[in-house]
């Protein structure tokens, strides 16, 4: 405690996300609190984080897979679908909770100085706690149908998890900060959440989009969530296919060599922009809330 205490410092001037790293203990407690409070008084508790995506999966599978008969053109459509849903849910849950996190914690922010980035970051961790068990279910399902991933594919899963978490943090910082001043931010995020499931190849396959967009397909690929979902398909769904089910357009071209690096750059840019916006707006959080 002594080291830093011998100079005069300006109170309330933090280093943003770096401070969050220094405050890991508080972050852990905030995440634990959030999970405890979210499921208080519920019998199923954390099990709800399985039930919801499962229901969602069933609806899509019945409506799209069976009624619209997408499963005929896409082998192992159930795996394809679930891999996308799980990842997109992680993103949307993180983003919408991060957006609300500053306003939700206004009592604290108004009275005590802490690195405010803690709140959006902790919501992303809470979502991760919901995401990881779902990932286990996905892995179980994949193993049942004969999943044999390569090391590279497993590494890609971890990378994509990190990338989506960073993307959600960046956007969450941005929209969470703006939400303090304009509550419209929440509605914009609700819209993004709605669009994201359909703007990435979660329910359909990418080649359907290419057929329509033609030379403009790269615009579609610029969305980091699109790339994230495609890489997830490559890691979970593609290794479950039999040799005769693999066709030339199973995976989009240049996915790992071009689009994955592009997506990571976009994600980092979003994080940078989010942190920048957040820091500029955070100065007046306490008096605006």
């Amino acid at each position: 405690m002594a080291g830093q205490s011998d100079q005069l410092v300006k109170p309330g001037s933090g280093r943003g996300l770096l401070d969050v790293y220094g405050d890991r203990f508080l972050l852990k407690l905030l995440v634990r609190k959030e999970i405890k409070v979210r499921y208080r008084g519920s019998v199923l508790g954390l099990l709800w984080s399985y039930v919801k995506p499962l229901v969602q999966f069933l609806i899509y599978f019945v409506a799209l897979g069976i009624f619209l008969n997408l499963q005929r053109g896409t082998p192992n459509y159930a795996i394809y679908l679930f891999a996308g849903i799980v990842l997109v849910n992680f993103f949307t849950e993180s983003l919408s909770n991060a957006t609300r996190s500053i306003v939700d914690n206004r009592d604290l922010i108004r009275k005590i100085y802490l690195p405010r980035e803690l709140f959006p970051v902790s919501t992303v961790w809470v979502s991760a706690a919901h995401f990881l068990p779902q990932l286990l279910v996905l892995i179980g399902a994949c193993l049942v149908v004969g999943w044999t991933p390569s090391i590279l594919q497993l590494a890609a899963v971890v990378l994509i998890f990190g990338m989506v978490a960073v993307l959600a943090t960046g956007l969450g910082l941005m929209f969470g900060a703006v939400n303090v001043y304009f509550r419209d931010s929440e509605n914009i995020v609700d819209m993004i959440v709605m669009v994201v499931t359909w703007a990435s190849p979660v329910l359909y396959v990418w080649s359907m989009v290419e057929r329509v967009m033609g030379p403009w397909f790269w615009v579609y690929q610029l969305n980091p969530m699109t790339v994230a979902v495609e890489v997830f398909h490559w890691a979970f769904w593609e290794p479950t296919l039999k040799a005769d089910q693999l066709v030339a357009d199973t995976m989009p071209p240049d996915l790992l060599t071009v689009w994955l690096p592009v997506a990571m750059l976009v994600t980092l840019a979003v994080l940078f922009l989010g942190q920048l916006t957040f820091r500029r707006l955070a100065i007046h959080f306490a008096q605006e809330l």
Binding site: P11, G12, Q287
Partner: peptide, 9 residues
């Protein structure tokens, strides 16, 4: 007090 504690700038 809030200025001193860093809550307000």
């Amino acid at each position: 007090l809030k200025l001193i504690s860093g809550v307000l700038q």
